[in-house]
C-alpha cells in the first residue's frame, strides 16, 4: 500500500503548489492595477485621474461613456477650461466648462461660474442652495485628454451588476482551472 499513499501525497503537494502559484499571480495582477492607479494619482495630482462622462450636458464634445483624463496643477483656473467639480451635498462630480472667473487681488482666491456646453443656462441651479460661485476647493481637476467610448464598460457594470458578477465569476473560474 506504500506506493499508493506516496503517489497521493505527490498529487496533493502538486495541487497545493499549483493553487499557491495561481493565488500569487492573481495577487500580482491586482497589485499592479493598484500601483498604476496610485501612480496616476501621484503624476496627475488629482484624486481621481480618470472620470467617465455620465450625462450629455457637454455634447457634442463629450458624450455619455467617454472618458476624460484629469490633471490638477497649481496653475490658476481660467475661463474656457473644462473642470470637474464636486458640489456640497452631491455625490457625483460634474464635468463642465468655466465661463466666468473673478480672482481676488489680495488673497488670490477665485470665484468660478460653470456651464455645460449643451445646457441652456449656467450651473447656479446645480450648485448648493444659495451658492453663487464655485471656489478652488470644489475643483477636483481639469480635463486634459479625451478617449471615446471606453467608459461604457464601467457604466454597464454599475447599472447592470449581474454582468459584473458574471464577468468576475468567469474570470475566477478561468484562473482556477487554467493549467499553466
Amino acid at each position: 500500500m506504500g506506493w499508493l499513499s506516496d503517489s497521493l501525497d505527490s498529487i496533493r503537494t502538486l495541487q497545493i503548489r499549483h493553487v499557491l502559484t495561481q493565488i500569487v499571480s492573481l495577487g500580482m495582477i491586482v497589485t499592479s492595477a493598484l500601483i498604476i492607479w496610485k501612480g496616476l494619482m501621484c503624476v496627475t495630482g488629482s484624486e481621481s485621474p480618470v472620470v467617465v462622462v455620465l450625462s450629455g450636458s457637454m455634447e457634442p464634445g463629450f458624450k455619455r461613456g467617454d472618458i476624460l483624463f484629469l490633471h490638477m496643477s497649481k496653475d490658476p483656473i481660467r475661463a474656457g477650461e473644462i473642470v470637474v467639480f464636486n458640489v456640497d451635498g452631491r455625490e457625483i462630480p460634474i464635468v463642465h466648462r468655466v465661463i466666468k472667473v473673478h480672482e481676488r487681488q489680495d488673497t488670490g482666491e477665485v470665484d468660478i461660474l460653470t456651464k455645460g456646453d449643451n445646457n441652456f443656462g449656467d450651473d447656479r441651479l446645480l450648485y448648493a442652495h444659495g451658492q453663487l460661485w464655485l471656489q478652488r476647493h470644489h475643483i477636483m481637476g481639469r480635463a486634459v485628454g479625451f478617449l471615446p467610448y471606453v467608459g461604457w464598460v464601467t457604466i454597464i457594470m454599475t447599472e447592470k451588476p449581474i454582468i459584473k458578477y458574471l464577468l468576475i465569476g468567469a474570470l475566477g473560474l478561468l484562473v482556477i482551472t487554467s493549467k499553466e
Binding site: 466648462r97 472667473v101 473673478h102 481676488r104 487681488q105
Partner: peptide, 21 residues
C-alpha cells in the same frame, strides 16, 4: 469640434483678474 468663446477681461481694485464670457 472647436469650442470658441469671447470673454471680456479686466482688472478692478478688488480683483486681479475678471473674465466674463
Amino acid at each position: 469640434q472647436v469650442f470658441v468663446f469671447l470673454a471680456a477681461e479686466y482688472e478692478t481694485p478688488q480683483n486681479a483678474l475678471n473674465q466674463v464670457s
